[in-house]
Design a protein around this nucleic acid. Structure first.
Length: 105
DNA sequence: TGATTGACGTTAT
DNA sequence: AATAACGCCAATC
């Protein structure tokens, strides 16, 4: 069965509200530091009714990838804002502030 | 069935 | 310092 998706699911669920994590961070958590792309692929295939805060996952640049689906990115940005994360219309946020290390509260 | 792309990251130039 | 190319594994065409 698929464990990778489950692992990513658990890792994303570990991210607290008002905080964002990078793909590399998630990949490292699940034990696959060499598969940041697959993490994105899993999130891409997530259902709309998912309970996972996939919108908290951003790239190392601290910005929402969205790769063309700006509309979806906008929704994601709105969601992050609703959680207290300060994001601009470009999807850029301050990883230095909202970036979750997994060790600090 | 094989080849290409992909919510990215890292290393080299 | 910034830009370019490469690498990883899986899913999709």
């Amino acid at each position: 069965m698929n464990g990778f998706r489950e692992a990513v699911c658990a890792a994303v669920a570990t991210v607290p509200r008002g905080r964002v994590a990078t793909y590399r961070q998630i990949a490292w958590m699940v034990g696959f530091p060499r598969r940041p792309r697959q993490v994105g692929m899993v999130l891409k295939g997530l259902p709309e009714g998912t309970d996972l805060p996939w919108h908290r996952i951003v790239n190392s640049k601290g910005y929402v990838p969205s790769r063309g689906r700006w509309w979806g990115a906008m929704l994601q940005i709105e969601r992050l804002r609703a959680e207290g994360v300060e994001v601009d219309d470009l999807g850029n946020l301050d990883l230095k502030v909202f970036g979750w290390d997994g060790t600090a509260s």
